[in-house]
């Protein structure tokens, strides 16, 4: 990666460890050991589906920037299109204007972080939410997203849910940088609130869709669904982003699962769907990149 080698050169020519925090960030961004450290996380050993987080902090920042750029583009385009411009949507426009401001703030944060580390942030790609990849000859994967409020909501829900999950997986790449990690964790929560709200809007819309405010196996399955490569490999069909959310097993060590069935009794007798609802799940980096590449 060009940026990375540039960073390496910068960091080796750099000042002492006591330099300003931003310079410190630059140093840590370029640390060659970061890759190995992340790969050695206990979680990686515990959960095979996430066993290959080979990202550096820089890779993670670039991924999250593209994610935020995508959400900025989604709301910018929708607010300027029939999906949100009609009189029937006047009541919910402020919701999306508010979310747009958040996403712009998040994207700006990553750009500033890169700039202060001496890097030129990439420009936002030209996002196409029809799934045609800016080529009218390609098949339309997500029809009417910008023309129909319900189609828009359905895609927005999937992308906001995916955003919360993508953030969760990238947290590990910031394990050695507490300042950035703090920011990433807190930004993740804003994405989770967005996802919850979009789901609430779908449930309370005139054309109500039976989805909870958290991903649930009881939700109506989106169609068309945003699909990503299966963790099982290229020979297996792509899977919905919600296939990762469906996990009902939580590990407390590499091999020990929490025996919820034994501890949940009485008035809160276990309901299976609650086990997966109670935890949001990370979306691995390969799937995250594949998802972003569908749109830009």
């Amino acid at each position: 990666m060009k940026l990375l080698s540039l960073l390496d050169r910068l960091s080796t020519a750099d000042a002492p460890a006591a330099a300003a925090p931003r310079r410190d960030l630059l140093h840590r961004l370029g640390q060659a050991g970061a890759r190995a450290a992340v790969a050695a996380l206990p979680l990686a050993a515990a959960l095979p589906a996430q066993a290959a987080p080979t990202d550096t902090t820089l890779d993670a920042i670039l991924l999250l920037l593209k994610l935020e750029d995508m959400l900025v583009a989604l709301y910018t385009q929708a607010l300027a299109s029939p999906a949100l411009a009609g009189a029937a949507q006047a009541a919910v426009r402020p919701d999306f204007e508010r979310m747009l401001r958040h996403q712009q703030g998040h994207a700006q944060f990553y750009r500033t972080t890169l700039l202060t580390a001496g890097l030129t942030p990439p420009a936002a790609p030209r996002f196409d939410f029809s799934g045609r990849r800016n080529n009218a000859g390609n098949p339309e994967l997500f029809p009417n997203v910008l023309n129909d409020y319900n189609a828009f909501l359905q895609l927005a829900q999937q992308l906001e849910d995916a955003s919360a999950s993508i953030y969760l997986n990238q947290v590990a790449a910031f394990a050695t940088d507490r300042q950035l990690r703090d920011v990433v964790l807190r930004t993740q929560l804003v994405e989770a609130r967005h996802a919850s709200h979009v789901r609430t809007l779908r449930r309370t819309a005139t054309a109500s869709v039976a989805v909870k405010s958290w991903p649930s196996n009881a939700d109506v399955v989106p169609s068309p669904a945003v699909v990503v490569p299966s963790p099982a490999g290229a020979s297996t069909p792509p899977v919905s982003i919600y296939s990762f959310e469906a996990n009902e097993v939580q590990l407390v060590s590499a091999t020990t699962a929490v025996p919820f069935l034994a501890v949940l009794t009485g008035a809160t007798a276990v309901q299976f769907v609650a086990l997966s609802e109670a935890f949001d799940e990370p979306l691995p980096t390969a799937q995250a990149n594949a998802l972003l590449n569908i749109f830009g």
Binding site: L168, V171, L185, S196, W214
Partner: peptide, 12 residues
């Protein structure tokens, strides 16, 4: 993070 993400959804 997996847990607090759901807490944020509750709060919302």
């Amino acid at each position: 993070g997996k847990i607090v993400s759901v807490e944020a959804r509750h709060a919302a």
